[in-house]
């Protein structure tokens, strides 16, 4: 009778991307929460149209500013991957520049969203469409702030010397959440600003 715990001790395992796996699940949860709101919006809009009601007056939601956000997030998707690749190459100056640029794009998206909210002149206690528009943009801003904070923490940790070619999962995790937040907007853009 031999105990299995005492035989042939296993070699130490390099923990495979725990932060990345955890972030993957967290991103999934965030996407489901956001798409939960978006689905209610789309569903209520379809119901209103079926009932012959007007959802928004013509021209209230403009494609231009929302398109700028779309392209800003496309640029940010590249810069955040640039940061991941730079960390993998142990190219810290490039990583810092890329992380800073991504954070700046995040601030720009926030600014543009704020402009859109003010530009529409919607009221929270207005119509169903206006209310849901507020809830959706508000929810998106919460996730955007979350992504920027995650990125800022990652940048600070990188500045203090963490991460490198053998341990890039912190930056990769921040990038993954960033991409999830970008996907939220891209789907929203098509569902709301393009199809109106």
């Amino acid at each position: 009778m031999t105990a299995t715990t005492t035989q042939l001790a296993a070699p130490a395992i390099r923990r495979p991307r725990t932060v990345l796996v955890g972030t993957m699940f967290a991103s999934g949860a965030a996407l489901m929460a956001y798409f939960g709101v978006l689905a209610v919006y789309v569903s209520e809009r379809a119901a209103a149209r079926d009932a012959g009601e007007e959802w928004f007056a013509e021209g209230v939601i403009e494609l231009g500013p929302s398109g700028w956000i779309f392209w800003t997030l496309v640029l940010a998707a590249f810069t955040v991957q640039w940061a991941v690749q730079a960390i993998r190459n142990d190219d810290r100056p490039n990583a810092y520049i890329a992380l800073a640029l991504t954070g700046m794009f995040g601030a720009a998206v926030f600014n543009q969203l704020w402009f859109i909210i003010n530009d529409t002149g919607f009221a929270l206690a207005g119509t169903q469409g206006q209310f849901l528009f507020f809830v959706m943009t508000g929810t998106y801003i919460v996730f955007l702030i979350g992504a920027v904070v995650f990125l800022a923490l990652t940048t600070m940790r990188a500045l203090f010397g963490q991460f490198g070619p053998s341990q890039d999962d912190g930056v990769a995790a921040a990038a993954m959440f960033w991409h999830a937040v970008s996907v939220m907007y891209w789907v929203t853009w098509i569902a709301i600003f393009v199809t109106k």
């Binding site: 699940f25 999934g28 949860a29 798409f35 939960g36 209310f131």
Partner: peptide
């Protein structure tokens, strides 16, 4: 993890609707 966030989204809508909607 994939289902409860949808319920949280529902709660957010109801909460905001009660608070200022």
């Amino acid at each position: 993890v994939l289902t409860l966030p949808v319920a949280i989204a529902n709660i957010a809508i109801l909460y905001i609707d009660l608070s200022g909607g």
